[in-house]
Structures are given as structure tokens and as C-alpha cells.
Design a protein around this nucleic acid. Structure first.
Lengths: 154, 154
DNA sequence: CCAACGTACATGATGCGTCATCTATTTCAA
DNA sequence: TTGAAATAGATGACGCATCATGTACGTTGG
């Protein structure tokens, strides 16, 4: 109840463009990964962090913070990846509540095979369409919006 | 097999920032809409287009092109919205394969109630974080990436 | 010491999105 | 005109994401 301040035409157009880019770009990247490697974007990100970890092994909560995912999303996702043989779960002796997620050889192979094509696609569809200045500007935009979303991030 | 050209550090950082903004921003907007109005972002977009149509009525394929959705996504989504009483389906006499989607009074009420809060959130989380120049730059970025994704768009 | 509280993780339900596939109708060309 | 192809739409299966909740273990203050 009150006079809502609507978006002006420029803002509307910018917003719609942004939404459309987002939808299409992630769809395209997902499709590329899926058809070329049988992985989803989410799989890919999980595997990246595991690959960079010592022994390909992390506590789920570490992964969760690195990915900025909800806890239950990660848990469900790890279950599916485990079912497909990409990761394993191990008990954690130091904290009996906890666990470890470990990259399996199949998981390591999957990310190794997937990475070149995915990077290629990101470059082709995104970076090659933009100037370095635009990339820098976009990064700045993202940073400011993130600060707005989560004032406590840093 | 060959020397993949990886992303440099700036590109990596920009890419991660972008992905994180995307995830968090849509999550925040979805949550706002959901808790304040019981609608999802997808519901909202469907209702917007229906509201702007004569008699609140469109052929599904028109809606599909306007939204830039896959056909089956729309069909499933309309089924869910129909189940909740937000829209109805009607037969189309001119093309017996086809149909109409019509806004119900409940649907019209839902979008009317939801719009101010949603616009407010978009403004607050997005536009208020950015300068007009940044908004223009982002729009340009989206346009270029979209052109890259779909050379035949226009 | 132990009760209260916090943390690590799992699970079931449900909505969302894609793919593959199916049906019905229209269109178009030989 | 008729058969092939294109178009409009629905549906089932399945992976993805969130919310609510549950369980087990650690931590801490009295």
C-alpha cells in the first residue's frame, strides 16, 4: 500500500536482458558438459574443489563453504555423485559426526576429461564475446551486488 | 587432446564472481517472492505476460516465445499453476491442436499483490547497488553474450 | 560431571527443469 | 487430394534445489 517505485524502461530492459543471458548461458554450459562428459555444472564444481584438495579429500562442510551451497543441497548432490561412482564417503575419525568426501579414480578421470571442453565453452560463449574492460566491469558489478546481498561477506 | 587455453586469474575471478552473484541473487529474489506471496520467479514471469495480454489470455506458444522457455517446461509449469488455481486452460477453436492459457481472478490477485514487493527487492538488491553506467554496461554485456549464444536472435 | 546448546550430516517431500516421446491437428507439395 | 512433414501441446522419468526435520556427536558453563 503506497506508490511503488517501478523500474523505468532502461532498467526493465537491462533486467530482462540479464535474466535472459543467465538462463541461456547456464543452459548452454550445462548442455555442453552433459552431452560431452555426462556431468552437470554442479558436478563439475564439486569435482574442481575436490581435485584441488590434498588427496582429493574434503570434509563436506569445507566443500559447502567453498561452494557456497546449502548444506542439504550438498548432501543430496554427494549422494547422487556417490551413486554414480564419482566420489566416496569415508568416516572421519577425528570427529565422529563428520565425514570425508573423496574423489574416486573415476571422478578424477571425469573432471580431467570434462575440463578442456568446459573451459573452451566458457571462453567461447562468454569471454570471447567481451572486452577485458567489460569483464572487469562485470566483476565489479558482481562484487557490489554480492556486498548488497550479504553485508557480512567481507 | 591439445593445449587447452585455460582462463587467466582475472577471468577465473570474474567468472566465479558472476556465478556467485547469479546464484545468490536469484535465490534471494525467489525467497522473497515465495515467502511474501507464495509465488516463484517463474510463476511471476508467467503472470506478468498474461497480465499484459488482452483478456489475460495467450496461446501457450506465444507465452513460450515471450518467456524464451522450453515447451515442456512451460507445459509442466502451467499444469502446476493450474493446480493452484492461478491459470486455466481453454480449448482453442481456431486451431484444435492448440489451447489458451487464461489468468484466473486468483492469478490476477496474486500478481497484483506480489508485484510491489518484488520490484522493491529487485531495486534494492540490484539497481540500488549499481550506477546507471554499470546498468548500461551490464545490458551491453548481456546483449553481446546473447548474440554469441544465438546468432539468429536478431 | 552433565545438561543445554551448537555443529555435522542425512533424509523425505515437493516444486522446478530437461529430455525423450507421444498424440492430434494443420500445412504443404507432388 | 493425399501422404509426408511440420506444429501445438501433454506426459513420464529423472536429476536438481529447498525446506523442514531428524540423529548423532561435540562443546561448554554451571
Amino acid at each position: 500500500m503506497s506508490d511503488t517505485r517501478w523500474l523505468d524502461d532502461d532498467q526493465q530492459r537491462a533486467w530482462r536482458s540479464y535474466l535472459r543471458m543467465q538462463t541461456r548461458l547456464t543452459a548452454a554450459l550445462n548442455r555442453q558438459l552433459q552431452t560431452d562428459s555426462g556431468l552437470s555444472l554442479a558436478d563439475y564444481e564439486v569435482l574442481v574443489y575436490l581435485t584441488d584438495a590434498p588427496d582429493g579429500r574434503l570434509r563436506p562442510y569445507e566443500l559447502q563453504h567453498a561452494l557456497d551451497w546449502e548444506q542439504s543441497r550438498l548432501s543430496h548432490h554427494l549422494s547422487r555423485m556417490q551413486r554414480r561412482g564419482l566420489v566416496e564417503r569415508q568416516d572421519c575419525p577425528e570427529d565422529r559426526r563428520g565425514a570425508f568426501v573423496v574423489l574416486t579414480p573415476a571422478g578424477r578421470e571425469a573432471i580431467t576429461n570434462a575440463a578442456p571442453g568446459h573451459v573452451e565453452a566458457v571462453r567461447d560463449l562468454f569471454f570471447d564475446a567481451l572486452t577485458p574492460e567489460q569483464v572487469a566491469a562485470l566483476r565489479q558489478v558482481a562484487t557490489q551486488v554480492l556486498a548488497r546481498l550479504d553485508p557480512a561477506s567481507e
